[in-house]
Deep mutational scan, measured.
Amino acid sequence: GNIFIKNLHPDIDNKALYDTFSVFGDILSSKIATDENGKSKGFGFVHFEEEGAAKEAIDALNGMLLNGQEIYVAP
């Protein structure tokens, strides 16, 4: 299952995104959108192997604080 994450703190990188979401299941890919200079655009995507893991991550993390910013997590 794919999920979309927005309002990410600029310091959150691909590894931090992966580490945050990997507790919910096996991740096939995770990516933070960046500009041409490699600076985070504040949103990203995680693709879980299983749909159930994606739903669990959405339920658990939507509205949670990550590096002091409330993140939005949705399908």
Rank of each mutant, 00 (worst) to 15 (best):
G42V: 02
I5L: 13
L8R: 00
L66R: 09
D19F: 09
N67G: 11
P75F: 15
G38S: 10
G38T: 07
K31Y: 03
L61F: 05
F43A: 03
E49A: 12
S40P: 10
L66W: 06
S30D: 03
S30F: 03
G68A: 13
I27M: 03
L66G: 05
G42A: 12
A54S: 12
K39L: 09
H9F: 08
D11A: 12
D19G: 10
G42L: 15
Y18P: 02
D26S: 12
N62S: 14
M64W: 09
G42W: 04
P10I: 11
K15R: 14
F21S: 06
D13I: 05
D19Q: 13
V46C: 08
A33R: 07
N7V: 04
L28R: 08
K55Y: 10
K39I: 11
F43H: 08
N2S: 02
F43V: 03
D13E: 07
Y18I: 06
E70H: 15
I58Y: 08
P10Q: 15
N62L: 12
E49I: 11
H9M: 06
L65M: 12
H9V: 14
Y72P: 00
N37Q: 11
K55Q: 13
E56N: 10
H47D: 02
F48W: 03
M64E: 07
S22A: 09
E56H: 10
S22P: 01
A60V: 12
E51N: 11
E36D: 13
I58R: 11
L8V: 12
K39R: 11
S30R: 02
N37C: 11
G1V: 03
S29F: 01
N37G: 13
Y72R: 08
V46P: 01
I3G: 00
F24D: 00
I5H: 01
T34M: 15
P10G: 08
I58Q: 13
L61R: 05
G25F: 00
N14P: 07
N14E: 04
F4S: 01
E50Q: 14
A33I: 05
I5G: 01
G63R: 15
N37A: 13
A16Y: 05
G42F: 07
E56I: 07
K39V: 08
P10V: 15
K31W: 04
E50L: 09
L28V: 05
I71C: 08
V23D: 05
I32H: 04
L61Y: 05
D26C: 07
S29D: 00
N62A: 15
I27V: 08
L28F: 07
S30H: 05
Y72A: 09
A33S: 09
G1W: 03
V23E: 10
K6M: 01
V73S: 05
N14Y: 04
D13F: 04
F4C: 01
K41N: 05
I58L: 11
Y18G: 05
I12R: 01
A53Q: 08
N37P: 05
S22W: 08
H47A: 03
D59S: 10
N14G: 11
S22G: 12
G38A: 12
A60F: 07
I71P: 03
G68P: 03
D26G: 11
L8K: 01
S40R: 06
L8I: 14
T34K: 05
P75I: 14
V23R: 05
H47C: 03
E56R: 06
M64K: 07
S40C: 06
A54D: 05
S29I: 02
F48I: 04
D59I: 08
G63A: 09
E51G: 10
I58N: 07
A54P: 04
D13R: 05
D59E: 15
I27K: 00
N2F: 00
E56Q: 10
P10T: 15
F48A: 00
N37R: 12
S29L: 01
I3T: 09
I27R: 00
N62T: 14
K39Q: 11
I32A: 05
E70G: 12
D19I: 11
I5D: 00
A54I: 04
I3R: 00
N67V: 15
L66E: 08
A16F: 05
G63T: 09
I27H: 00
K15S: 06
Y72W: 04
F45A: 02
I3L: 12
H47G: 02
K39N: 12
V23A: 08
V23F: 07
A33F: 03
N37S: 12
L61M: 06
A53R: 10
Y72G: 05
M64A: 07
V73L: 14
H47E: 02
A60I: 15
Q69E: 15
